[in-house]
Write a protein that binds this DNA or RNA. Structure first.
Length: 151
DNA sequence: GCCAACGTTGGC
DNA sequence: GCCAACGTTGGC
């Protein structure tokens, strides 16, 4: 099973939203970057994903969720009322993809970005690279283990 | 709120 | 296909 990391603003949809009902699948929509979209498309059912909280008070990895439905056309791109509406996305060839994910666990403490930057072995992770804006990225098994061990 | 870094757009 | 202008991301 592949591992991933997804950024989110906890005010919008954070680990608390997943934990609120562990049986409820949450639609991971609104990814509007091609590289991130391609990674979303590569996700398989059962893959685990770190949830990273950005643009907030406590920045860092907060928990783990897993994929319960592989990529399908993101409904938000066709919804004019959605902030993620994309008028240029053709209905017969949708540009954007979504996946469904459910809660797995919180980390026993939030692992701050500052600490992630200091961990040996994570230099290749896009998250810790200066100026990186990638919102969905692969995490190698080795990186995954390093992060879990640091908690 | 600031602003550097980035991705996308669109004129040429 | 280049690249300047623009809008967005996201840490600080």
């Amino acid at each position: 099973m592949a591992k991933w990391l997804a950024k989110t603003e906890p005010d919008e949809c954070g680990i608390d939203d997943f934990a609120a009902d562990p049986r409820r699948a949450i639609v991971w929509e609104g990814v509007r970057n091609y590289q991130a979209r391609n990674f979303l498309s590569d996700m398989a059912v059962g893959d685990e994903v770190f949830i990273y909280h950005s643009s907030c008070k406590h920045i860092g990895i907060a928990g783990i969720v897993k994929v319960v439905r592989a990529a399908y056309p993101d409904p938000a791109q066709f919804d004019p009322a959605s902030p993620y509406f994309d008028s240029k996305s053709p209905a017969d060839r949708p540009r954007w993809q979504a996946v469904d994910m459910v809660f797995v666990d919180r980390l026993s403490r939030l692992l701050p970005l500052e600490e992630l930057k200091s961990l040996p072995g994570l230099a290749d992770l896009a998250l810790v690279k200066k100026g990186s804006r990638l919102s969905v990225m692969p995490v190698s098994q080795a990186e995954w283990d390093i992060i879990l061990k640091a908690v």
